[in-house]
Design a protein around this nucleic acid. Sequence first.
RNA 1: GGUCCCAUCGUCUAGCCCGGCCUAGGACACCAGGUUUUCAUCCUGGCGACAGGGGUUCAAAUCCCCUUGGGAUCACCA
Length: 490
Amino acid sequence: MTDTVRVRFAPSPTGRLHIGGARTALFNWAYARRHRGTFLLRIEDTDPERSTKEYERAILEGLRWLGLDWDEGPDVGGPYAPYHQAQRIERHRVAAQAMLARGEAYRCFCSHERLDAMRAEQEAEHQASAYDKRCRSIPQAEAERRAAAGESFVVRFKVPEGKTSLVDHVRGDVTFENKEVDDWIMVRSDGNPTYNFVVVCDDVDMKITHVFRGEEHLINTPKQVLLYKAMGAKPPEFGHLPLMLGTDRKKLSKRTGDTALQDYQEKGYPKDAVVNFLCLQGWALNGTQEIFSLDELVKHFDINDVSKAGAVFDIDKFRWLAGEYLRKEPIDVLVDHCVPFAIQAGLLRADEVPSKRAWLASLLAAEKERMHVYSNFPARIAYLFAKDDELPYDADAEANAKKHAGRVALLGDFQAWLAPKLAAGEPSAALKDGMKAWLSERKAKMPELLQPLRCALSGRAGGPDCFDMIAWLGPERALARIEHARRRLA
RNA sequence: GGUCCCAUCGUCUAGCCCGGCCUAGGACACCAGGUUUUCAUCCUGGCGACAGGGGUUCAAAUCCCCUUGGGAUCACCA
């Protein structure tokens, strides 16, 4: 056949999609698209205890959310179906039998007790724990007899002499001494094959040409390369991606932050920001352009340019990037993205959204400057929903207001000036101009009025333009808040 | 501890493969100014790194070696 690129992402549905897994998927996908190859998805559900359909569905949804699509997979099918590993188990059994028959593997009857004792001893002597190969010497006929008699056994891979090298596109080629590679278990005593075995069987069957995965798999790779050879198959090329690290510089874990893609989705990170950020962890477009699209990734992605060193998950940069993307969204789209969070916070009911859409758009147009993620929205606008006489005043807002000695009188005069204009429906821009003229007539500076006013309207030290807030509140509530402030700021 | 991997600003990185253009570039964060009614956005500036030591070379962040430091992994889990 041809040497068309075929890459895969093979998640295990035993939990939510890890953010590092999402990046692995992204890089595999980008590589396939860049080389006009095939990207496929395979579900590694061979652990029936922990695998669930719910996780599987969530993982697929997560990938779709990011904008990744696959040419072959569990839901779309393909020429190498099935794409659920558990459904391929017969093939694995056949392959294991063939290996046994060819003498590339052997039955091991050692008990857990013996293995545990051996491990303990090796550990005490500061050696790597590895099987001592005792059962290698059992003649095949005897092994078959004992197996037939019902004796429990596992199938181990017979690691040959020599050394094993692999082509790694991110690290440069890596070599291992075979004597350091354990005679690992291919098939468990219950007859089920193990990961290192099935992953190779399936990759061979699915004609995978390149395997890009996390660095934690690097040490497994010689086992797999040796297996390819024993099966008479050509090993794929590899690329072991740098780990994503927590602030403790260890493999990203829940201890130092959110690890699931879904966590960021639920927190309202724009998905394009997530993709962009994931790209930046271990790869760079050109070293100067930080913000770029999936298209640009595909256009420029090169596995050889992926960094070797682990990348600390930089949440500050992620937040910044999220804000950049959020601000670029068309306002209608932004409303759709933010409204669910306002509903969830109890600020709005879903049924009143259509009638308030223009109002919400106006809020967002002003507030987006202060937001990074969609979930910031409710906290930004909560003051609008407070009772006018119970609006909480932040300490710094109140302090700013109270810096001005004439605040109560000025607020009163302003209220009297404002009320008729509001009643007449004067637009915000005109009110603002009028206010400036009014203030200069009385030889008052803007902050003298606006700081107390801001506190009166929002209870906060910072925020949008005061006249925007008046418009959002409406004449009645705005004036009520000023009225209350004259008492509360006295 | 064995094996394997890694090492440029606090963080993400460009440069390294194909030594000179590097008085090491960009971004986030931080600090200082400017803009703003305030906050934010935005603009300007600042701080800030080639882990250490040996080589090779006219010349090393770039090549080689050692040391140190960090990480991954050592399951009948994937």
